[in-house]
């Protein structure tokens, strides 16, 4: 339990915003994060290090839980009736705020530096949970082009975030 507490502190600042972005509701996002941590706690054996880092796995779990929740009609109705996420209270620890605000600022700057189509497909795919063919239909673009934008966007993102940006 002790390790779960530490890991909660460490990774929730990355997980919760993903759920909030998808669900646009603090209550729903918190529920999704709770579902995700319980799933991780109960079924940690489902983690396969060959398929990515722990961070990537935790984010996959919380994203899936949030998208499942979004796809349930009630949540979707709630989410769609909101224009913006509810205001977020300032964190009590200014050093923590500085750390993750800096992190998100750098990543956002990198996202902003992508070609608009690349950024759009990455965001639609990740936060709206659409498949490549669904994105192609939504953007009225050829499927092959959507696939290229996805690959190029992810590769460019890695190029734009060199190591020193994170340390």
């Amino acid at each position: 339990m002790r390790s779960l507490s530490e890991l909660f502190d460490r990774y929730t600042p990355l997980m919760y915003p993903v759920a909030l972005r998808i669900l646009r509701s603090r209550a729903d996002a918190e529920d999704a994060v709770q579902d995700a941590w319980l799933q991780v706690w109960r079924r940690s054996a489902s983690y396969d290090p060959r398929r990515g880092t722990v961070v990537a796995w935790l984010l996959t779990v919380v994203r899936t839980r949030a998208l499942d929740r979004y796809r349930s009609v009630a949540s979707r109705n709630r989410a769609e009736s909101r224009v913006d996420p509810e205001p977020v209270t300032a964190p009590e620890d200014p050093t923590q705020e500085a750390a993750h605000v800096q992190l998100s600022a750098r990543v956002r700057a990198a996202m902003a530096a992508l070609a608009p189509q690349q950024r759009q497909v990455l965001e639609i795919a990740y936060f709206h949970g659409l498949s490549q063919s669904e994105i192609a239909k939504q953007l009225n673009a050829p499927l092959g082009t959507v696939k290229s934008w996805t690959r190029q966007g992810l590769m460019r993102l890695r190029e734009l975030l060199p190591q020193e940006e994170w340390v």
């Binding site: 990355l14 909030l20 972005r21 990537a56 993750h100 990543v107 956002r108 990455l122 992810l154 993102l157």
Partner: peptide, 9 residues
């Protein structure tokens, strides 16, 4: 992970 981190804050 970077895409996810763009939502952080």
């Amino acid at each position: 992970v970077m895409v996810a981190a763009s939502a952080a804050g």
